[in-house]
Amino acid sequence: MTDFSSALGLSASGLRAQAQRLQHVSENIANADTPGYRRKSVPFETALGDAAGHVRTGRVTLDQSDLKRVFDPSHPLADMTGHFDGSNVDLMVEIADAREAQRSYEANLKMFDQTRQMSSALMELLRK
C-alpha cells in the first residue's frame, strides 16, 4: 500500500502546486490594468524530505521587465508629459500559463483518481 500512498501524495503535491500557480495567474489577469503592477511568477521546486518527484512552489518573484508607458494626460498618476507606468502583464502569456496549469492540474487529478481506483480494485481482490 505504500506505493499507492506515494502515488497519491505525488499527485496531491502536483495538484497543490498547480492550484497555487493558477492563483497567481488569476491575480496577474485581475491586475493587468493596475498602474505599476508587476507580474508575479512562481517556480516549482523539488520538495525536500519527500519521495522523489514531489513538488512544491518556490518563492514568488516579480517580473522585473520594464513597465508599459501609457499616455493618458487625464490620469491622476500622469507626469508632466501625460505618461504613467502601466503594468507589465501580457494577457496572452497569462492565458497560455493558465491553460498549461489547468491541463497539468487535470493530469494530476486523473492520476490521483486512477491510483484510487487501482487501490480499491486491489482491496476488492484481497477480500475474495
Results as ranks from 00 to 15, higher is better:
Asp3Thr: 09
Ser5Thr: 09
Ser6Ala: 08
Ala7Ser: 11
Gly9Ala: 08
Gly9Asn: 02
Leu10Glu: 00
Ala12Ser: 15
Ser13Cys: 02
Leu15Glu: 02
Arg16Tyr: 11
Arg16Ala: 13
Gln18Leu: 04
Gln18Val: 00
Ala19Ile: 01
Ala19Val: 07
Arg21Asp: 03
Gln23Asn: 15
His24Leu: 14
His24Ala: 11
Val25Met: 08
Ser26Ile: 05
Ser26His: 04
Glu27Ser: 14
Asn28Gly: 08
Ile29Arg: 00
Asn31Cys: 04
Ala32Val: 07
Thr34Met: 12
Tyr37Asp: 01
Arg38Lys: 15
Lys40Thr: 04
Glu45Trp: 04
Glu45Asn: 09
Thr46Trp: 00
Ala47Glu: 01
Leu48Gln: 14
Gly49Tyr: 10
Gly49Arg: 01
Asp50Ser: 07
Ala52Thr: 00
Gly53Val: 00
His54Met: 11
Gly58Asn: 02
Arg59Cys: 01
Val60Asn: 10
Thr61His: 12
Leu62Met: 14
Asp63Ser: 09
Asp66Thr: 13
Asp66Cys: 09
Val70Thr: 05
Phe71Ser: 04
Phe71Cys: 09
Asp72Glu: 09
Asp72Cys: 05
Pro73Glu: 08
Pro76Ile: 10
Ala78Asp: 02
Met80Ala: 15
Thr81Asn: 10
Thr81Cys: 05
Thr81Gln: 14
Gly82Pro: 00
His83Pro: 00
His83Phe: 13
Asp85Gly: 01
Asn88Ser: 05
Val89Ala: 03
Leu91Glu: 06
Met92Gln: 07
Val93Gln: 07
Val93Ile: 13
Glu94Arg: 01
Glu94Leu: 07
Ala98Trp: 02
Ala98Leu: 10
Ala98Met: 13
Ala98Gly: 14
Glu100Gln: 13
Glu100Ile: 11
Glu100Ala: 14
Ala101Cys: 05
Gln102Arg: 10
Arg103Gly: 04
Ser104Ala: 14
Tyr105His: 13
Tyr105Ser: 06
Glu106Lys: 10
Ala107Asn: 03
Asn108Arg: 05
Leu109Met: 14
Met111Ser: 15
Asp113Gly: 13
Gln114Arg: 08
Thr115Ala: 15
Thr115Cys: 13
Gln117Asp: 13
Met118Thr: 13
Ala121Val: 04
Leu122Phe: 10
Leu122His: 06
Met123Phe: 07
Glu124Ile: 01
Arg127Ala: 08
Lys128Asn: 07
Lys128Arg: 08
